[in-house]
């Protein structure tokens, strides 16, 4: 299958300045060697805890950030180093939805101007065309056309998120990066927005990079799921497979930590010690092996811990601290 988005070995480092005469003393390795791809009409879920670099990765993919190294290929075009001017015509094809629908909408603009703005920037349609297009977009996301003349503060969180989605749809994009689109919403509103995203994808053939910290939400909307820990993807597999048969210790811990509403469910909770280490000074070997103080941690220093295919379509970090002994045998043979 021809990929819409191909990310290879992407890194995104932020300089850390310090000292009496400020100079770079280190770097935050927010994204550290990530490779992934998304096909047309596909959703790739990206899950991880705060500070793991998932939002940074999302922003780098749509070139809101300039990657430190690696490459991003969109629809066959390498956009990694393109200037903002050269990117502009391509931006029609990839859009973003943000977590906080309050901060991502300009409070001084009417809903109509917010949704119309991308059309104006890309000089699409006459004035009357644009009026019609905005009304259609509002209808598409389940808002009345009377909403167009109102202002963001007049709407609830769920409705604001619908406005954000309408704006993202205005240019008929192929890919939408959704960064925690439902985390700020109430339970009953969250399901409305998730359904809207699923329906839009079915009708318009959109691709999503769906970023969230909630594994049950990510699993629900995604074809494949990537689990990120401290700047690296540690496991990547089809949704069903990652839930039924997780292979990485971190994925297992994440799954076991989700509270279940089934009072009869009996699952063994894996309680992790400690918290995510700082990406400024990450452990030199396996980051998760370091957190769980695994006896084989020392072996992983300097080892290639990149993803390997453990079974068709199911990739896991080749890390002796984080996979079972059997899996490690198979993975080390592949090296």
């Amino acid at each position: 299958m021809h990929n819409l988005l191909t990310v290879s070995n992407l890194t995104m480092h932020f300089p850390v300045r310090g000292g009496v005469i400020p100079r770079q003393v280190g770097a935050v390795k927010a994204v550290d060697g990530v490779s992934l791809h998304i096909g047309p009409g596909e959703t790739l879920g990206l899950v991880g805890e705060s500070g793991c670099g998932k939002s940074t990765l999302g922003k780098a993919v749509v070139r809101l950030l300039k990657p430190t190294s690696g490459s991003i290929e969109f629809n066959g075009t390498d956009i990694t180093k393109m200037s903002q001017r050269a990117l502009r015509p391509l931006r029609r094809d990839f859009q973003m939805i943000f977590q906080d629908p309050v901060e991502s909408l300009d409070p001084r603009m009417s809903v109509r101007s917010i949704i119309e703005e991308p059309l104006l920037i890309h000089k699409i349609g006459s004035r009357s065309d644009r009026v019609r297009m905005v009304n259609e977009l509002l209808d598409r996301v389940g808002l009345p056309s009377s909403a167009a003349e109102r202002y963001p503060f007049e709407f609830s969180g769920g409705q604001r998120q619908r406005i954000g989605i309408a704006r993202a749809l205005a240019l008929k994009p192929k890919l939408i990066v959704c960064d925690e689109p439902v985390s700020a919403l109430d339970v009953s509103i969250q399901s409305q927005i998730l359904n809207l995203l699923v329906e839009l994808q079915r009708e318009l053939g959109l691709s999503y990079l769906f970023i969230a910290h909630d594994l049950s939400v990510v699993k629900h909307v995604s074809d494949r799921v990537a689990v990120m820990y401290l700047g690296k993807i540690v496991e990547l597999a089809p949704s069903e497979s990652i839930y039924r048969d997780p292979r990485h210790a971190y994925t297992k811990a994440l799954l076991s930590a989700i509270p279940s509403t089934d009072p009869n469910a009996s699952r063994e909770r894996i309680l992790l010690e400690g918290e995510i280490p700082s990406p400024i000074d990450p452990p030199r070997g396996s980051a998760f092996g370091h957190r769980i103080k695994h006896p084989r941690y020392d072996e992983t220093i300097g080892m290639d811990l990149s993803l390997r295919e453990i079974k068709p379509g199911h990739w896991v970090a080749a890390d002796p601290c984080c996979v079972s002994a059997d899996d490690w045998k198979k993975l080390s043979l592949q090296k």
Binding site: S156, V187, S188, N195, S216, E240
Partner: peptide
């Protein structure tokens, strides 16, 4: 009932539509 059903769970089918409570709080 609506609250319990509208939550995506690990058991729910990927990309299926969730039962929703219409309207807002």
């Amino acid at each position: 009932r609506g609250l319990l059903r509208s939550m995506p769970t690990l058991e729910s089918k990927p990309k299926s539509l969730l039962p929703v409570i219409p309207g807002m709080v």
